[in-house]
């Protein structure tokens, strides 16, 4: 009888603790490229280029505006999971010029966790760009994972 009572007590205690466990995903689930923007051209500084900067892709339905989503001179976005290249356009409402960067990449699918499911990691192999506003750019980290962002530095 005492054994049954003890087992019952353990079960009740256990069910209390189990009810506190979470099945929610607690990890970052998108592998992002952080674009670090350095505006050195005085003309662009004078027209408030960075604050009016927008980034978009022809395949997107929306844009990323620096003032809304940018932090510390950087904007982050993910690469295309459908193709092995991604075209990103940099523009500003204060200038009619714009620049296009095309990243060529490969992706691999990763099982992040049972709670989160699967994600894509990317490796950028190369890129091309126009130079209407861009002075130079450097790919600092070409590996995009959910743990660590890829990094590209762009000088305007």
């Amino acid at each position: 009888m005492r054994i049954i009572r003890n087992i019952f007590f353990v079960l009740i205690t256990l069910s209390y603790f189990l009810s506190c466990t979470s099945d929610q995903c607690e990890f970052e689930t998108e592998s992002l490229l952080r674009t670090e923007i350095n505006v050195v051209d005085t003309n662009l500084i004078n027209i408030g280029f960075l604050d009016s900067l927008s980034v978009y892709s022809p395949a997107w339905e929306d844009s990323i505006h620096y003032l809304e989503e940018g932090t510390a001179n950087s904007i982050s976005f993910s690469l295309s999971p459908d193709n092995d290249y991604t075209t990103i356009i940099f523009t500003s409402k204060n200038t009619s010029n714009k620049d296009t960067i095309t990243f060529y990449h490969q992706k691999e699918i990763i099982f992040l966790s049972p709670e989160c499911g699967f994600v894509y990691n990317f490796t950028i192999n190369s890129f091309t760009n126009t130079e209407n506003l861009i002075d130079s750019l450097e790919l600092v980290n070409n590996e995009l994972t959910t743990d660590e962002k890829g990094i590209i530095q762009i000088y305007f």
Partner: peptide
């Protein structure tokens, strides 16, 4: 497997 992205279309694989 459904992978969602903020800007890209959802992919299934």
């Amino acid at each position: 497997i459904i992978i969602e992205s903020e800007h890209w279309s959802t992919t299934q694989t």
